[in-house]
């Protein structure tokens, strides 16, 4: 009997510890902080002539989720916005250094 209870507990423990399936309590400040980073990186990208529109879309989505109180999703979306912002800056830097005409124009 004990063992069965143990097994059931263990099963739920595993489920709960699976990212995406669990919803531990989150404060809105976490998502807000990531969102702020995303915004400032996005601004930097635009100043570098390299902003991506998808970054703005994800930031908007994250804000909406925060307003709705869905902090877990808001954080996920804000993290994606930050990733896009980072990637856009990388692209702009890369291109400034290494843009080139395609071989067929040489």
């Amino acid at each position: 009997m004990n063992k069965i209870i143990f097994c059931i507990l263990f099963f739920f423990l595993l489920l709960v510890s699976t990212p995406g399936l669990s919803t531990p309590a989150l404060s809105s400040s976490e998502a807000n902080a990531v969102l702020k980073q995303a915004m400032s990186l996005h601004k930097q990208a635009i100043a570098n002539e390299g902003g991506w529109r998808i970054t703005g879309k994800f930031m908007k989505k994250a804000k909406k989720l925060l307003d709705k109180g869905d902090r877990r999703k808001a954080l996920d979306v804000a993290i994606r916005a930050r990733e896009f912002a980072e990637l856009s800056i990388m692209q702009a830097d890369m291109e400034k250094k290494s843009w080139s005409e395609p071989p067929y124009l040489k």
């Binding site: 002539e49 991506w52 400034k96 843009w99 395609p102 124009l105």
Partner: peptide, 15 residues
């Protein structure tokens, strides 16, 4: 440079 620079998440340049 602007013309041959890849931009946007889809990484396109004008060319």
């Amino acid at each position: 440079r602007v013309y041959f620079t890849r931009r946007g998440v889809r990484d396109f340049a004008c060319y």
